[in-house]
Nucleic acid binder design. Sequence first.
DNA 1: CGTCTTCCTTACGTAAACGTCAAGCCTGTG
DNA 2: CACAGGCTTGACGTTTACGTAAGGAAGACG
Lengths: 133, 133
Amino acid sequence: MNEDTKTIRQMCDAYDVTPRTLRFYESKELLFPIRDGQKRLFTKRDRARLKLILRGKRFGFSLEEIRQLLDLYHKDDQQLVQLRRTYAIARERLADMQRQRDELTEAIDDLKAQLKWGEKVMNSMEVPSKAAE
Amino acid sequence: MNEDTKTIRQMCDAYDVTPRTLRFYESKELLFPIRDGQKRLFTKRDRARLKLILRGKRFGFSLEEIRQLLDLYHKDDQQLVQLRRTYAIARERLADMQRQRDELTEAIDDLKAQLKWGEKVMNSMEVPSKAAE
DNA sequence: CGTCTTCCTTACGTAAACGTCAAGCCTGTG
DNA sequence: CACAGGCTTGACGTTTACGTAAGGAAGACG
């Protein structure tokens, strides 16, 4: 048994990331695995942070933004102020994402229209025998 | 008067881009300005394409994706086979876009949930005076 | 004619988020 | 003991969408 730590390989399997990614995150001070000799051991805290990192990535945060947010969590004093800042940042991101989705929806509709037009043209071209006569 | 063409500077002012950007787009075969000596002259067609390029960028498409879409928009005078190929490409793009939007929607919902949680926590922290007593 | 401004080409620089070697250290196994 | 595997640390490579600097041509102006 280990004392609630995981090796890099176990982490990779559990969270579907590469070793390179985990080392990269450590180098960027997003994770702080302890060492057994030269081997990394990822603690419960690292796993919690990694979950937040991956979720942040889904939301479109950069790693640097994520690092800052994680740091805010880490500072236990002034929690209310920090939480408010986090909240504000998150709201901005949400607005960005919604705007992006709206634009995407518009583009989808445009493209759909194009496709319909394409279908019409193809149909009129598929039976040119009658029209040619 | 010019014959419906604009210089690079006029283009930059009109569309809020840099000269570098326009040259870059030309090098990537997104634009095809004609030449007066060595100077570029951007035609009406270039301007139409640039509008689509900028819109595509707002949608989050890569320039390479945009180039494909432009090909779709402008290769309307082709053979049936060509049309079918572009049609297929466009359908793939549409599928990609819809998947992208679905992911975005999911992420948006997640983030919204996070924000609600944040509000709850903040509310419970704002009035600790009573609870402390 | 000299200088300014605008344009040109060439080409190296940048940031993000890792991928991909290279080469070395440990450990277990036959 | 020898070798395979897994982990380690560099350190250079990749992609995208330009920025930026160097050096030069070409027309306008005083």
